[in-house]
Amino acid sequence: MAPYILRRMVSAIAVMAMVGIFVFLLIRLTPGDPAAVMAGRNATEQIIAGIREQLGLNEPLPVQFIHWLSAMLHGDFGTSIFSGRPVLELLLQRLEPTNSLSILTLALSVAVGVSFGIQAAWRAGGLVDRLLTVFSAFGYSVPVFVIGYFLVYLLAISVAWLPVQGYAPIEEGFGDWFSHLILPTIALSLPFIAFVARVTRASMLEVLSEDYMRTAAAKGASSYAMLVHHALKNAGVPILTVIGLSFAYLIGGVVLTETVFNIPGVGRLVVDAINNRDYPIIQSVLILTSGVYVLINLAVDLAYTLIDPRIRY
């Protein structure tokens, strides 16, 4: 077990190092002069030189890398070109809306996706199963900003049941916070529900044909007990894996959703950073989200042993 954890951690660090090198080289190897692009059209040579200095682009490449890396490892993610404040501070301010949206989306996707998938596998070829086929075809194909505006039009403009956009902090009241997040969560969840449901269904189908399922049926277990205790437990590993892997995709969706619903989260910070040509913010979000992705997948790999005691490394 211990050697496995160690090996897995080393490979996670290797991937992170690769991401770091990649992001580091991105700005240095881009054709043209990124500092000039960031400074904008009417910038003087002096301003461009100042930005180049601030980004540390004047030194030799290896020296730049060491400075850059040690700053990152010390938690210094640079200073925003636009506002002049530390990037980390700006990020932390925006974390609550993004976390709320992500966690609600994950909860909804797992709850609906897993039950949908179980139902579809239980009566494969039946009504629920065919419904899932149609639903997943649409879930994969509707962009979040299309379904988002559609939901807003339907439920917030035609009938004013829910707020059109915006965000209410949770400390100002749970109800307000929740009602602002209902539409964004549904819009963002659709592809994930489809994804989780499909994987659950495939994974359950495999388990349902196992001998121990026949044994469970023979000893008279109820269908609920059979599905949840005997089948879902064994089908859990692939389901957990795809949830981990879909995190990178979730972040892309969060950026779009926050723009549609005008939620002041990390995604909006990035989109505003594009308009202000504020590369330090974009770079930091890139590194941090990849870091979270790698950590989540590391945790998922290690969690296998908890779900499935047969897995021993």
């Binding site: 290797a14 991937v15 690769m18 991401v19 990649f22 992001v23 991105l26 700005i27 881009t30 054709p31 043209g32 990124p34 692009v37 990178a248 995709y249 972040i251 892309g252 950026v255 779009l256 990035v270 950073a273 594009i274 040509r277 590369y279 974009i282 770079q283 979000v285 890139l286 989200t289 990849s290 992705y293 790698v294």
Partner: peptide, 24 residues
């Protein structure tokens, strides 16, 4: 394959945003 792992761990939209914000 490790380079591909690294590429996969960066959210698609963010990677595209980073590239385009550098070149216009």
């Amino acid at each position: 394959m490790r380079v591909m792992d690294a590429l996969m761990s960066i959210p698609t939209i963010l990677l595209a945003i980073a590239l385009i914000s550098l070149t216009g």
